[in-house]
Structure formats: structure tokens, C-alpha cells
Design a protein around this nucleic acid. Structure first.
Lengths: 128, 128, 128, 128
DNA sequence: GTGGTCTAGACCACC
DNA sequence: GTGGTCTAGACCACG
């Protein structure tokens, strides 16, 4: 089941893109499985304190990308095979890590310092 | 001098925020010093292939944050003391870095895998 | 209701300022009342053949002056009490009117000629 | 001789247009005659506390409109025959009075009130 | 050349 | 539908 517990808005990024991204991250992590039902627009809208239209937009785009199907009524289901998931994984990791590494390098961190920072960030989260 | 060589646009995030972040990273890295002049609106806009107005917006916000001074007709300069730089450093580490680490964890990436990826990206860049 | 029928652009003066002035004139005239809704950005932009953003700017400034209230997703409304209206009236008479009179005098127009011209223009409009 | 004593900036209108306008008003009023020398860019720039480039721009446009000629060195002279002056007069009066009448009408002033206001404005100026 | 502003068009989030 | 924002391009005033 896809929980939106530690969903956190990224500054500046459109909300619907953040939702798409969050769901994709769940796919990659295996937190959400093929065929699983997505939270209804109404529920998710309440959960994230976001307008239903915005949820709808995210779902629609995911559907256009072939990762989600909408069936009878307003229910949406994950429809992603392993190939797609792998592709999404590359896409996300490529983006995130590259950005992170770029930021670290640009801030003048050595590789060692970068590793230390990474460790620190991972541990911090574990204690949360 | 602040070079924008390895500036890469991130999808979704407003360009002016990315520019602000890039300059802040340079400040933290010490790549750009207090009193140094910033590239002019036109030069930087040509370099990044964005509208001069977008650069203007980034510089204006940095000025409002007290990190840059601009005078009409004259150039724009960095004006940030050590206290401000330290504050910016915290802001960046607290914000961006933590967020990326969170995303990676949410994707189920182990710490070891993250380290491997980081190494890979650092080496990749070194060969460029 | 505020009609923009006889709105005519003045060369050189920024459009958004002209719109602001027009609305203020309506306030002074009592053509538009407190609590009344303003035409939406799109409607007015189509009516005046200008960009919606220009309307937006005018409305935003009026809001900053406390004469209009806007809420995202909802309409914009006039919010001006009598004190504010009186103040606007003074502002308009002191500013625009005096300025035009000054320009006419500077052109060497006698008071009589000015009166004749004024009459002429009032009649002209009446026949339209 | 064209004096810039009661030159007053109109809000929002570009400075170079205001200068053009002021000179045209002088032409219409007869304050400045055909063949008369315009103040040098430097002098006028100091007088109006405006950048010489801006004066230059105004003079250049007046020259393009055929109302001014630049001769040997930086000196500029009025070169406007009666036909041209008459045309400028119409242009200015049309604009100003129409705008003033429009504003008055839009503020709901009756013709009588408009005349009273006009009188008042003319008298006020006389006492200044 | 510099920075500042006005207008334009597209997109976002909300009702 | 509504208002809010981001990007774009042209113009203004200044050095």
C-alpha cells in the first residue's frame, strides 16, 4: 500500500509533479505493486491538503505514461510491468543522484566529505 | 569568478530558483567571494539560454536576501559576510541535501547502494 | 457594474496605470460600488485587448492600496469605504486634472478657449 | 526662449516623451520660435536632472519628426513652420482635452461641474 | 555596456 | 470558470 506519510513538498516544483514523482518512487521501492489500487482522488486530496483537480491531473499523466489505468468509476490502478519500473528507477536515480552529486561537487565537497554527508543524512532519517 | 559551466536545469523546479541555488552553492564553496562581480544579466542569460528577465529575478531575490547588491547602470556584486554564508550553507544542507537523501531512501535505496552511486557520479564527472 | 466602454488608451502611459486610474475614476463617480465584483482578468483583458497579466498587475496594485480584495479561485471585489473614496478623489483631482490644466496653460490656451474646447468635447461625446 | 521651469514629470510616462511633449507645448504656445536654439544636451540634462542620453533621444526623435535640426557640433535648432506647429497643436489639444473631458465625464461630473473645476484649476495656477 | 520595468503568453492550483 | 506565477522579449534610463 502506498502511504503518503513522509510526503514533503519540494520548493517550487508543481504539486502534481511531486505527486507523480512520489508514486513513481513508491513503484521503484516496491512499496506499491502492479495492480494495486491507488487512493481515490478524494482521499488523497484530503490527505495531502490539495485540490482534487490536482490529484486528477497527476493520475491522468501517469495514465498517459502507461503506469496507471483507470477502471469503472473513479478507481485507478497501478499497471506497470518490471521493464517500466526499471525504466522509472533509472530515470529517478539518474536525476536525483546526479543533482545531489552536482550540488555537492559545486559546493566544493571532496568525495570523502560527500560520503560523510550522505551517511549523516541516511542516519538522521533512520532516527526520525 | 563564478562559472556556470556545470549548471544543469532540473525539470520542474523554476529556473530562477535553480540559479539562486547555484550561486548560493558557489558562495558556500568559496568559488565566489564577497565583493566579486556577478555576470551581467545578458551574459548569464546567453550562457544558460534563458530570458534575461529570469536572471534578473534571481538577482533581485538574492538582493532582497542581502547577498547581492545591484545598482542601475552598474554591475551587480556579491555582498555576503561570513555569517550570511554560514547561514546559506545550513539552508542548503538542511534543505536540498536532506530532501534528496529522503527521496533515495523512499525509493528503497540502501546506504551502500547510495554510496556506490555517489562514487560512480563523482568519477564520471572527473573524466569529463 | 463597471463598464469599460469609453476606456481609451493614452500613448506613453503604462496600461496598468491607466486601468487603475479608470477604476478609481469609477469609484469617485459612484459608478462602481463597494462590494461590487470586478470583471475577471480574462474578460477585461479581452475587452481592452491587453494581456491578462496587465490586468492582474492593476488589480494587484489596487489590492495593495486596499481598494480591492482578491482571493485565488474566487472573483475580485471592490473594497473601498467612503474615506478611501474621498482620498482617491483628491488624489485624482490633485494629480491628473491639475496636470492637464497645467499642460493647457503651458500651451498658451486661454481660459475661454479651454472652456470652448471642453464644451465641444462634452457635446461630441453626447452624440456618440 | 524655452524655459523648463514648470516642467513636471507625468507619472509613468517615459522621460524622453515628456521632454518631447514639453518642447512641443512650447512650440504651440509660441514660447519657442522657429530657428531658435534648443538648450544643449548637457545644460538641459543638468536642468532636469536627467541623463544626457535621454535628452539626446528626445532631440533625435524631434529631428526625425522634422521639428528640429541638428547643425555643426551638438547644437540643435527648432525648424518648424506654421503648418507643422498647427498640426502639433491639434495633436496635443486633441489628446489632452479629450483625456481630461473623458476623465471628468467618467467621474460623473456634469458639464457645469467640469467648467467649475476647469476654472478653479486655471485660477489656482495663476496664483502660483 | 549596466540594471529596471512593462507587456505578453502559458501554466499552475483552486472553486 | 477564478486568481497567481514563471518565462519571454522589448524598451527605458543610466554609466
Amino acid at each position: 500500500m502506498l502511504s503518503f506519510d513522509n510526503f514533503l513538498q519540494t520548493e517550487g516544483m508543481p504539486i502534481y509533479l511531486q505527486i507523480i514523482r512520489y508514486i513513481k518512487q513508491g513503484l521503484v521501492a516496491g512499496t506499491v505493486q502492479d495492480g494495486e489500487e491507488l487512493p481515490s482522488r478524494r482521499v488523497l486530496s484530503a490527505l495531502l491538503a490539495v485540490n482534487p483537480n490536482t490529484i486528477q491531473k497527476a493520475y491522468r499523466i501517469l495514465e498517459e505514461e502507461g503506469l496507471v489505468v483507470s477502471r469503472s468509476g473513479a478507481k485507478s490502478y497501478i499497471a506497470a510491468d518490471q521493464t517500466q519500473i526499471h525504466q522509472v528507477r533509472s530515470e529517478l536515480l539518474e536525476g536525483d543522484m546526479r543533482q545531489m552529486a552536482g550540488a555537492m561537487k559545486q559546493m566544493g565537497l571532496t568525495r570523502e566529505a560527500a560520503h560523510r554527508l550522505l551517511d549523516q543524512l541516511f542516519c538522521e532519517e533512520e532516527n526520525t
